[in-house]
């Protein structure tokens, strides 16, 4: 059974009067790919910065690889790599020179590792071109190369596919899968491209306004993003009351301008329709749909 390599307990980060994180708790299992999902300003980057040692929590505890003290956390970080916000790059140096500087500070003895990672991210032919002249996608790839340089056991990546073309996104997704499957590298990825995360992640953490909205495994999220019956009637308010009274249906949402979504009794669509009609409510629309990850995300992050 995989052990937790990161445990975050009641983490709070306050900037003046504003709470960037408010009692955040979750854990990350070894070998998992965790999607950290939330809108801009939700607290995703703050969590990553605290994990990376760039920011200090106001209160709460961060445990990584069993360590909570500064020395232990620094040792844990030597086993990890981070790519937070804009990828690292010295503008006037080439890709190779940038990675050479990183190789020196990380104490990596093998110079050939630079060529290896550049090849992995498809930047091996940039030659002496300086980073100043790189596209956003190339800079992103360089940031990934830097993250791979030290052969980390755990990677924390903030929007790693930002700026990549569709081909690049597929390449990097396959790379992450390969790293996770073949080398058991644990990954934490934040992204707004939820469709990509759903193809990759084994676990999800939803965050908004500095608070955790929910944590799910892949299976749990699939179940949550399940089918529903979409009904629109000429009197949705009366329809809602009838659903509770007549059909004993409690798991439903009334969506403004969209109608009613029913999450149970999926096989009784005909009976529901008949009941409504018999009670003077005309169903205008009735169909079976599925909750997309985007819809579920919007629901999760909009909850107070």
């Amino acid at each position: 059974m995989s052990e937790n390599i990161v445990e975050i307990s009641n983490l709070t980060k306050q900037y003046g009067k504003q709470k960037a994180l408010d009692g955040v708790s979750f854990s990350i299992k070894e070998g998992s790919i965790v999607g950290l999902i939330g809108p801009n300003g939700a607290g995703k980057t703050t969590i990553m910065k605290i994990m990376g040692g760039l920011a200090f929590p106001t209160s709460g505890e961060l445990k990584m690889y069993g360590a909570t003290d500064e020395k232990g956390l620094n040792h844990a970080r030597s086993r990890m790599s981070f790519m937070i916000e804009t990828p690292y790059a010295k503008e006037k140096l080439s890709a190779k020179e940038n990675l050479e500087k990183q190789r020196l500070q990380k104490g990596i003895p093998d110079k050939k590792r630079i060529e290896e990672v550049l090849k992995t991210v498809n930047l091996e032919n940039t030659g002496k071109k300086v980073v100043k002249n790189f596209s956003l996608g190339m800079r992103q790839r360089l940031g990934l190369a830097n993250a791979l340089l030290g052969k980390p056991e755990f990677m924390v990546l903030d929007e790693p596919i930002n700026g990549l073309d569709p081909e690049g996104i597929v390449e990097i997704r396959d790379l992450f899968r390969k790293l996770n499957k073949e080398e058991n590298i644990t990954l934490v990825i934040s992204s707004h491209i939820l469709s990509e995360l759903s193809l990759l992640c084994t676990d999800y953490v939803f965050i908004n306004h500095g608070r955790i909205k929910g944590t799910f495994t892949e299976q749990e999220l699939k179940a949550a993003c399940s089918e529903y019956i979409q009904i629109n009637t000429d009197n949705n308010e009366k329809a809602s009351s009838l659903l509770i009274e007549k059909c004993k249906i409690e798991k439903f949402d009334v969506i403004k301008d969209s109608g009613i979504r029913i999450y149970e009794k999926m096989d009784e669509i005909r009976d529901i329709s008949k009941m409504l009609y018999e009670n003077g409510v005309i169903p205008v629309e009735i169909a079976k749909n599925a909750v997309s990850l985007e819809d579920y995300y919007m629901k999760m992050v909009s909850e107070v």
Binding site: S81, F82, K101, Q105
Partner: peptide
Amino acid sequence: DKTINYEIMSG
């Protein structure tokens, strides 16, 4: 340019 950040994050 965040070089110092990456040194801190390297442990």
